[in-house]
Design a protein around this nucleic acid. Structure first.
Lengths: 120, 120
DNA sequence: AGAATACATGCCTATATCAGCATGTCTCAA
DNA sequence: TTGAGACATGCTGATATAGGCATGTATTCT
C-alpha cells in the first residue's frame, strides 16, 4: 500500500508545505488563484491542485466572482489537529517539568557557588 | 516530483494514521517494539519502520534493554505543529486556549534557559 | 555452543502523489 | 462574434512511500 490519500483528512492536507503556505496566505483574507500563484511564485495549475485538495478536506471554501475564483480559509476544519495534540500537552508539561528541574538544579549550584565565593 | 519526504518534519510524520497510533500508545509510557506491534495488531517490521520515521524526526527516543528496544515519546518535537496552528487560533478559539497557554509556558521556560545559557 | 527471541533492514509490488505541459470551459472585453 | 483572461483537469514522468516477506544481527536461554 502507498501512503494514505492526501484528500483524506486535515493532517495529510497540511503535511504539504506548499499547502500550508496557501493556507497562510488565505489567513490574510480571500484570494484568487492567480493572486496565490503569484505570491507563492508557483504555476497556476499547481495552486489549483493544492486548492482542490484543501477544498476536499474543507479547509478552504470557494466563491465565484466573474471569471475568477476566490478562495477563503475555513480554519475550523483544522480542529482535528489541535484536538489530537491536546493529548500531548502533558508531554510538553513533562518536558517543561524536566527543564524546570534542571533549572532549579543549576540555580541551586549557582547559589552554592555564590555563597562559596562570598565566603572566601 | 513526489511528495516531500516523510522523514522531513513532524507534520509529515504525523500525517500517517498508524504513526499517530504509535505515538498515542507511547503517550502512555515506554514500550517495546513487540508490545506496540501487538497492541496495534500490525506486523513487527511495520512498527519498526514507523518508529524509524518517528525517530528520524525526533518524535521518539530509543533505549536498549537487553534484546528489546524501548521507545518513548518526545512530545516536544511536536511543537512546530501547534506553533503553526497558532495562526489559526481564532478559527476555533476555545479549544485552543489551553494549548496556547502550554505553548507560552514552554516558550517562557526556554527563554529563561537561553538567558541562563548566555550568562555562562 | 546452539537455539530462540527481539528487532532493524533490504527487496518488491501497488499506489499515490507533485509538478510540468497541454487543453477544455466559462466569462469579460472589443 | 472573436479573442483574451482565469481556472480546473487530464496526462505524464520521477519519486516516495506502506506493508508483506525474508534475512541479518545482537542478546538471552538451555
Amino acid at each position: 500500500m502507498a501512503r494514505a490519500s492526501t484528500t483524506k483528512d486535515a493532517f495529510n492536507a497540511v503535511a504539504e508545505p506548499r499547502r500550508r503556505e496557501i493556507l497562510d496566505a488565505l489567513a490574510g483574507g480571500e484570494h484568487s488563484v492567480g493572486e496565490l500563484a503569484q505570491s507563492l511564485r508557483v504555476a497556476q495549475p499547481v495552486v489549483s491542485k493544492h486548492l482542490r485538495v484543501l477544498r476536499d478536506v474543507n479547509l478552504v471554501a470557494r466563491r465565484d466572482q466573474g471569471r475568477r475564483r476566490l478562495y477563503r480559509l475555513n480554519g475550523a476544519a483544522l480542529r482535528p489537529i489541535p484536538e489530537w495534540l491536546r493529548r500531548y500537552e502533558e508531554s510538553w508539561s513533562q518536558a517543561f517539568d524536566r527543564m524546570e528541574m534542571v533549572l532549579q538544579t543549576v540555580e541551586a549550584q549557582e547559589e552554592r557557588q555564590d555563597r562559596q565565593g562570598a565566603e572566601t
